[in-house]
């Protein structure tokens, strides 16, 4: 698998807002989830990968095209160099890069007044496709995305699901090797969301597209992606594959106890067990350390003469795990080896 993204110490600052801090990433081709709460810096990172904005400092390569910091680029005007060949080269580099990338923005980004087919064909022409080929390809892509019946309808008349699909269509028109998808399931109902995720999975798994799926929904990443990058406050909090994040999940149990359980609970805590919740009906939710064995619950119950009437595993969901990871204020970056 080839490395598609290689970033080194990327920083992005908008006035006093430090949007990205020392981002160093090496990602191989595949389906990658870029996860983080709102304001984490996901969209900014996508724009840097696309060459839309230049990082304040740092450097990197996306699909073998260089990304340069604004310290170099800011001297150009409208992206055009001023008697400087290398600046013009940067602009051309960005253009070459964007030809290899399909970008699906989070915002609607539709052109009112155009029909679906005109919009997608225009995207093709903007990528540099000849007009006739752009038209033909637009029909193909819209058919693939099941929008063939709506292709002659004005974009204003599209539902949210159709808008999301047509945004995907305009990103796919030139058949790029890499797709940058900014919140592709935003505003979709559950059925629409499933359909969109299925499409993305199919594109990545069966048609060899590399995807970078930016979202704040871990469930979306779970369905589609193999690799995951978690961003928080502009820093990478976790980078690894989805399986490795699962290994970070804590084992949890739901216990139902009959009798006075105060001493039993104290002993549980002494054993390193965290009591997450407890109600006055004797129901406990606990989180156990890795080496804990289930039969130890019964041993302790017998010791404190309480009856353990219920014991069921209650594993931490990936959503809870994600929340736990983003709430931790440790500045150190957790890195797990990609399998």
């Amino acid at each position: 698998m080839e490395t598609i993204i290689d970033l080194n110490e990327i920083n992005q600052q908008f006035y006093s807002n430090h949007a990205l801090k020392n981002i160093s990433l090496k990602l191989k081709s595949g389906r990658i989830g870029l996860l983080g709460p709102n304001g984490a810096g996901k969209s900014t990172l996508l724009k840097i990968l696309l060459g839309l904005i230049s990082p304040t400092s740092g450097e990197g390569k996306v699909l073998s095209e260089s990304i340069q910091s604004s310290k170099v680029k800011q001297r150009s005007f409208f992206g055009w160099g001023r008697n400087n060949f290398t600046l013009r080269g940067t602009q051309r580099g960005n253009e070459r890069l964007r030809k290899k990338i399909g970008y699906m923005p989070e915002a609607d980004a539709l052109i009112p007044g155009l029909t679906g087919i005109e919009y997608v064909a225009l995207a093709g022409e903007l990528y540099g496709m000849p007009r006739a080929q752009a038209q033909r390809r637009a029909h193909e892509v819209l058919t693939y995305l099941e929008l063939e019946d709506a292709r002659y309808r004005r974009l204003e008349q599209y539902s949210t699901g159709m808008k999301q699909r047509i945004k995907l269509a305009q990103a796919l028109i030139h058949d790029p090797p890499l797709l940058l998808l900014d919140e592709p399931t935003s505003g979709l109902d559950p059925a629409g969301r499933d359909a969109m995720l299925r499409l993305l999975l199919e594109l990545g798994r069966d048609f060899g597209k590399s995807l970078i799926l930016s979202t704040h929904l871990l469930a979306d990443v779970e369905v589609v992606c193999e690799q995951i990058v978690i961003l928080l406050n502009g820093s990478i909090r976790f980078q690894g594959n989805v399986d490795s994040i699962r290994s970070q999940q804590h084992d949890r149990y739901r216990l139902r106890i009959q009798g006075d359980n105060r001493d039993f609970c104290k002993d549980l805590q002494l054993e390193g067990i965290e009591i997450l919740s407890e109600n006055n009906r004797g129901e406990l939710r606990v989180q156990v350390p890795k080496e804990w064995q289930t039969r130890n619950f019964f041993v302790l119950a017998d010791h404190h003469q309480v009856i353990l009437r219920g014991l069921e595993p209650d594993q931490e969901t990936l959503e809870e795990l994600f929340l736990r990871m983003v709430i931790v204020n440790s500045p150190t970056q957790v890195e797990l080896a990609t399998k």
């Binding site: 839309l52 409208f78 960005n94 253009e95 964007r98 009112p112 990528y127 305009q170």
Partner: peptide, 27 residues
């Protein structure tokens, strides 16, 4: 507004600028 304003009002500008063209080409 129909030819230009809508690009800014409806957020279509990122649609143009995410393609291999610069702001100069758009203008």
């Amino acid at each position: 507004s129909a030819a230009i304003g809508n690009d800014f009002h409806h957020g279509s500008l990122p649609f143009y600028l995410s393609k291999p063209i610069g702001p100069f080409h758009y203008i």
